[in-house]
Nucleic acid binder design. Structure first.
Lengths: 163, 163
DNA sequence: TATTGTTATACTCTATAACTATA
DNA sequence: TATAGTTATAGAGTATAACAATA
C-alpha cells in the first residue's frame, strides 16, 4: 500500500453485501424521508397509511402487529395522522375498548402523492440500471429478505418490541 | 396475538428496490450489532478500528473525515476505544493540537475476531445464494452505491454533520 | 483567523412501566 | 385475568454551540 493517504481506497467493507446493504439501506431511508418531507409526512406515517390503504378500519393493535411496532408507539403515530386529518379514530363496531382507524378523504388524496415520491426515489436509486439489471436486483433482494425471515412490509427501523 | 388478520399479504412496498434495500439494510445493521456485542464492540467502533487498520496513527479529524462523522462525535468514539484499551492517543509528531490515534496490541488482536463476525454475517445474509448470484448481488449493489455517490467505507448511519 | 480537540446542553427517539376501561 | 388504548418518564443517540490550545 502506498504511503499517500488517498481517499477512494477500498476498505475491507466494500466487498461485503452485508455492508453495502446497510450503507445503501440507510441512504435509501434518508432520501425517502427527504422526499416525503414536503408532504408533511414521515416514512413511518406513510407505512401506517399504506397499511390502511390495504385494509381500512383496522385497530391500533392490528396496525401495530402488521408493522411490528409496539402498541404504545402506535398511539403517537395515529395521533400525528389524526392531527393532520389524514385518519380518524372511529368507534369500533364490536369492541368498545378499540378504535377503528379510517382514512379520511384527505388521507386518501395524499396517498397517491406519497406513492409518487416512492416511485421517484426508486428511479433515483435504480436509474443507473437497465430494466434487466433492476429486475435482477429486486429478485435477489426478495430472496435475501425472505431468507432473513423479514416480513413483507414491515421495517426493522420501526423497532420491534414486545411486552 | 389473538384475533388475527393474517400477515403475508403483500404491500405495495415489496416490489420496490428502495424499500427492500432499506428493510434489509436495517436488518443487516441490527444483526451486525448483535454479532459484535460479545466482543464488546459497536459497529461504529468497528468502523474506526477498520479505518485505523488501513492507516494507523490518523488524527481524530482525519478519522472523522474518512467516516463522515463530526469531529465532536469522534471524541466519544475514541474515548470508548481508549477505555477498552483498543487504541491510544499519542502526541502528534508535527501538530501539537492533534492526537495520533494508534491501534494497541489488544486492538490489533481484536480486529480479526471482528472480521470473523463480519464474515459470518455475510454468510448468514447471502447463504441462500449460490456463488454466481452472490457475485451478481454485490456487483449490482456497488453500482447503486456508486451512482448514489456513497463513499466506500462511509456509512450514512454515522450521521454526516458539518459546521 | 482558522483548526484540533473538548465539553455542555438541548433535542429527538425509543423503551418501559403503570394506569383505565373494557372484555 | 387478559386486552386496547393511553400516559409519563427515563434512557440512548444526535445535534449545536462555545471554549482552550495551537497553527
Amino acid at each position: 500500500m502506498a504511503s499517500g493517504t488517498n481517499r477512494t481506497e477500498r476498505t475491507l467493507l466494500d466487498d461485503r453485501a452485508a455492508f453495502l446493504l446497510s450503507q445503501i439501506g440507510f441512504h435509501s431511508a434518508a432520501r425517502f424521508t427527504e422526499r416525503l418531507r414536503p408532504l408533511g409526512l414521515h416514512p413511518r406515517l406513510f407505512a401506517v397509511l399504506s397499511q390502511l390503504a390495504l385494509v381500512d378500519g383496522q385497530t391500533q393493535q392490528q396496525l401495530a402487529n402488521a408493522l411490528s411496532v409496539h402498541r404504545n408507539a402506535m398511539v403517537g403515530l395515529v395521533d400525528e395522522l389524526e392531527q393532520h386529518a389524514l385518519v380518524e379514530r372511529q368507534p369500533h363496531s364490536s369492541d368498545r375498548r378499540a378504535h377503528a382507524i379510517r382514512l379520511t378523504a384527505v388521507g386518501k388524496r395524499l396517498l397517491p402523492r406519497a406513492q409518487k415520491a416512492a416511485d421517484e426515489l426508486e428511479a433515483e436509486l435504480t436509474g443507473g440500471l437497465d430494466a434487466v439489471a433492476r429486475h435482477q436486483l429486486i429478485t435477489l433482494l426478495r430472496r435475501v429478505a425472505a431468507d432473513a425471515g423479514l416480513q413483507p412490509g414491515s421495517h426493522p427501523g420501526l423497532k420491534e418490541n414486545w411486552d
